[in-house]
């Protein structure tokens, strides 16, 4: 752990129990976010990326969820040990979240002004007029035109992109150290997505915040991330800076994902595809969870849990087979 680390997660385990099933959604995940950087958690649905993010904010419903182990260190305290009142002081104030679907995360019966104002007044004691001015400033910062009028609007009066900008304004309300963005552009059009990504880049720079960006879209990752953690079936399979991941991927899963991206330059050729499907978190294969889909799998892969292999300069991949084979 380096000195400029803002938040670090150690060996986090989050399990979900239902009737007879026992899903190890997050199974020993470690990562850190440093100050003023954007990191991406990449993975497919069910790989545990959202669950990891929700556990940072203490938003895992228990039961059925259960934090089975690990530490989340933020400002010298373990967030997993805080009570609800202390957690409330961190949530929104120091760590804020932007969700995927802005229409369902905004309350339809309150105006935009009410909702951003609420985020401010929970954490700060301010006069109503000051709150209003604050809201206008925030909406201006996230690029919403005529913000004073927009304050009186209800969510349904805004477009998808504007709603997501409002969500970001709410997250920025208390000037947090870390913003967790969970697939914030997945529900948006490509042109709007490009605008929102640019907004994230600029606010991250201006406010010197850290951003933990969760996505399954490798195009987004290449455009926004400083460092990347690739997740598969509840574990981190590879970690590196953006260039290491995209130009020198060392885990078969990352390699497969990159090779399977369609693009104009691959016209006429057959796309590489990873066989099989993402495993159900309740019935994960033993050993390396990727082994049934892996082209390099050897018999030990189904028995032994793979260790992280160090490729130097912070580049780690959880695949001993490729590591011993000389990469």
């Amino acid at each position: 752990m380096t000195n400029d680390s803002l938040i670090s997660i150690h060996d986090l385990k989050v399990y979900f129990r239902s009737n007879s099933e026992h899903a190890r959604a997050v199974d020993g995940v470690s990562f850190e976010v440093r100050r003023e950087e954007t990191i991406c958690l990449v993975g497919e649905s069910g790989c545990g990326k959202t669950v990891s993010a929700l556990s940072i904010l203490g938003l895992i419903p228990t039961p059925p969820g259960e934090i089975a182990g690990g530490q989340i260190l933020f400002a010298d305290q373990n967030l997993l040990e805080l009570n609800e009142a202390d957690m409330q002081k961190i949530r929104g104030n120091h760590i804020a979240m932007v969700f995927q679907e802005p229409l369902t995360s905004l309350n339809p019966v309150f105006t935009i002004g009410d909702q951003i104002g609420e985020a401010i007044s929970i954490h700060k004691k301010l006069e109503a007029e000051a709150v209003r001015e604050n809201c206008i400033q925030l909406l201006t910062d996230v690029g919403i035109s005529s913000p004073a009028q927009r304050l009186k609007d209800y969510p349904h009066q805004l477009s998808g992109g504007q709603r997501q900008r409002v969500m970001i304004a709410m997250a920025l309300a208390c000037d947090p150290d870390l913003i967790i963005a969970d697939e914030p552009t997945t529900a948006l059009d490509v042109t709007v997505q490009a605008q929102i990504l640019q907004l994230f880049r600029s606010i991250q720079k201006i406010r010197s915040m850290s951003v933990l960006y969760i996505t399954h879209d490798l195009g987004v990752v290449a455009n926004i991330a400083d460092r990347v953690y690739v997740m598969y079936a509840g574990i981190i399979t590879e970690h590196g800076n953006t260039a290491q991941i995209f130009h020198d991927a060392r885990h078969p899963y990352t390699q497969g994902l990159l090779a399977s991206l369609p693009s104009r330059s691959k016209r006429g050729t057959r796309l590489h595809s990873i066989p099989g499907a993402v495993p159900n978190p309740a019935h994960k294969p033993g050993g390396c969870p990727f082994h049934p889909r892996c082209p390099y799998a050897i018999p030990t892969c189904s028995k032994e849990y793979p260790q992280m292999c160090d490729y130097g300069q912070g580049h780690l991949a959880r695949c001993p087979v490729l590591f011993e084979g000389g990469g």
């Binding site: 992109g161 490509v190 605008q195």
Partner: peptide
């Protein structure tokens, strides 16, 4: 120009549309 190239370092120069 809004296509995201999975190519780091080539962060796209977007011709951003007015909303």
């Amino acid at each position: 120009s809004a296509i995201l190239d999975p190519e780091p370092g080539k962060r796209q120069k977007m011709k951003l549309l007015e909303p």
